[in-house]
């Protein structure tokens, strides 16, 4: 594992703790998009089905289990939060899920000539999870643009997700150069996803960093 991927993973991990801290300490899920969190849960469940059949390392196994468990818990907390009407969580997620699923059926890493039926279904679900992750932040972005009183911790949560994406891009450059490791589906989707965060970072700069006490 190179430093770029490790920093990316740690930033991803930090994003979970930031969101959990916001939910637990403010006792409010205001400003948190249930739709984005439900999409992330879908992403992790679809992608980490290989948890059961492909052991890579304890690091990977534990991170996968944590990502699924933490996102499930976050979805549960936000969904059952009584103090959050989430009237602004209005993104039409079917416009994200259906195209991602259709694209995954046609553009994936399946090899029907070999491997079992179930392994190829897992490849389709892997591609689906990659495409869905790329756009899963859109409901949250829409909420941030509509809400006036977004808490800083929600913004820091988004920033850590953006840092995670940026470092994964560096990781892929490194791995392509030094290892020949190259998953074009993940890389293209990762670039799209990182570009979506560029929009957020402009907002972050204006609303958080410019307001920091000197």
């Amino acid at each position: 594992m190179n430093i770029f991927r490790f920093v990316g993973d740690m930033s991803h991990l930090a994003s979970f703790f930031l969101l959990l801290a916001k939910l637990i300490y403010t006792k409010s899920s205001t400003g948190v998009s249930l739709k984005t969190q439900a999409l992330y849960l879908t992403v992790f469940v679809c992608r980490y089905l290989d948890l059961l059949v492909a052991f890579v390392s304890w690091y990977n196994e534990l991170m996968k289990i944590f990502f699924i468990a933490a996102s499930a818990y976050i979805v549960y907390v936000v969904a059952t939060s009584t103090r959050n009407s989430n009237a602004s969580d209005t993104y039409r997620v079917e416009f994200l899920v259906i195209p991602a699923l259709v694209l995954a059926c046609f553009v994936n890493e399946t090899h029907w000539s070999k491997g079992g039926w179930s392994l190829n279904v897992m490849e389709i679900l892997w591609a689906f999870s990659i495409y869905l992750e790329a756009v899963a932040v859109l409901p949250q972005l829409k909420m941030l643009h509509q809400l006036e009183d977004t808490t800083n911790i929600t913004m820091h949560y988004m920033a850590s997700l953006g840092i995670y994406r940026a470092f994964y891009l560096l990781n892929w450059v490194y791995r392509l150069y030094y290892e020949g490791y190259w998953h074009p589906i993940a890389v293209v989707a990762g670039i799209v996803q990182t570009l979506l965060y560029a929009d957020f970072f402009i907002l972050y700069y204006q609303s958080v960093l410019l307001r920091l006490p000197s």
Partner: peptide, 10 residues
Amino acid sequence: ASLAPAKDEL
């Protein structure tokens, strides 16, 4: 060998 190397990322 498969077209793509094994997926070992998160």
